[in-house]
Design a binder for these strands. Structure first.
Lengths: 142, 142
DNA sequence: ATTTTTAAAGACAATTTTATCTTTAAATTA
DNA sequence: TAATTTAAAGATAAAATTGTCTTTAAAAAT
């Protein structure tokens, strides 16, 4: 569904969000350990998210990545930055031109599924998810 | 969503199904042209599908690929052969262990989307889709 | 039987994605 | 100011996916 980069990115942001709620600012080593992802690759993904203002970062001792406590960040924003929006928009069969006027054979069927995914990602906030994580109701690694 | 191989595979099978309804047996060159896909890559995908008995093939003059006229082939079967079933089963965040007992932060949300995709792919038959193609209601290339 | 047509198989190449490593720049602390 | 900690950036490497080419085997037609 998503690229590895995107999976790592979402996992990292969720951990960062959870820590940020406790005024902590994890660095890359802590993040990669917490979400069980390769450290240098995770660094690249987090840096990309910071460049795009999805995450905030601070250099130097006691620096790291963080989110505003009242962030309204949505799942969809992370996905859009890392994987682009082809998963929400693109044709299920990879046709360049595919619309309700000139639909591919699975256009209607996929539209429904994709719209469901899109709505879900646009209405799910990172803070909501981080909250459940905080409560121990969900997990970021096995 | 799907790999290129899978996209080409579905498009090829749909064209083959449409032709089969008219007792035609397109060869790779015809298929690749009809669905606008790279010929050698399409050949590999079709051969894989034939090996797995999703498609039938015949060598020699006037040979090519075909489907039984009363085939009950589902979209899900093509996807399963080419991409495997991770899209229907795997964790949205790539966790190896993710279940309702030990869910990832997006487990419930993704479950719903994935189930919708799964049900759609399992209930959509190739013959249904080929029929619309035949009627000119849908298209395989721009 | 020979030739032709076609799928099958496998080797090879290019590209993209994933992953790592090294150097640089910024910020803090002492 | 010097030393330390950390993100940022960029070079490099490995693996997977995508794409191509060549050879082989099967089937049909002549």
């Amino acid at each position: 569904m998503f690229s590895k980069a995107c999976e790592y990115g979402i996992r990292a942001v969720l951990f960062i969000a959870k820590q940020s709620q406790q005024d902590l600012r994890p660095n890359i080593a802590e993040i990669a350990k917490a979400v069980d992802s390769p450290e240098p690759f995770t660094a690249k993904v987090c840096q990309q998210l910071a460049r795009e203002n999805v995450l905030l970062s601070k250099k130097g001792p006691n620096g790291g990545f963080y989110l505003e406590k009242d962030s309204t960040l949505k799942l969809s924003e992370i996905i859009a930055v890392i994987d682009g929006d082809s998963i929400f928009k693109g044709c299920g069969l990879g046709l360049g031109e595919c619309s309700s006027e000139k639909p591919c054979p699975v256009h209607d069927q996929f539209q429904e599924v994709r719209d469901g995914l899109k709505k879900m990602c646009e209405t799910t906030t990172i803070l909501q998810l981080a909250d459940k994580l905080q409560k121990g109701e969900t997990f970021l690694k096995l």
